[in-house]
């Protein structure tokens, strides 16, 4: 069996779905964060696969931008998580409910 575009896409969609439902269902902020990264990685995988099988280089270039953006997002995100943990002593989303009417 040769591995084709289809296999890569199925893997990418699976990873994306795991990430997506992980964000919606998990309660720990750090796990949610990993799931968010998983979604970006799934997009990256699909991008590289498309780039390889279509013979267009733009996808590979796009990956660098995604990596940079993801790094920026993590830097800001973890800073917020740490500040919040210092303030509230928890990073459990179920317990973060100070904001309400």
């Amino acid at each position: 069996m040769t591995i084709g575009l289809y296999h890569y896409l199925v893997l990418a969609v699976t990873l994306f779905a795991i990430g997506f439902f992980g964000v919606l269902l998990r309660k720990n902020t750090l796990i949610i964060y990993m799931c968010l990264e998983l979604m970006l990685v799934a997009a990256t995988l699909a991008l590289v696969a498309f780039s390889r099988f279509n013979g267009t280089i733009e996808g590979n270039v796009f990956v660098f931008f995604i990596l940079t953006v993801a790094a920026a997002e993590v830097a800001v995100g973890l800073a917020i998580v740490v500040a919040l943990f210092r303030r509230r002593g928890t990073v459990d989303v179920a317990k973060l409910n100070a904001l309400k009417n």
Binding site: G19, F20, T29, L36, M39, I80, L84, R88, L96
Partner: peptide, 16 residues
Amino acid sequence: LEAGLKYLVLGSLSSG
């Protein structure tokens, strides 16, 4: 901070 975290999670989700 809590608003920031909520925006972060949902914003990244939509970016994904």
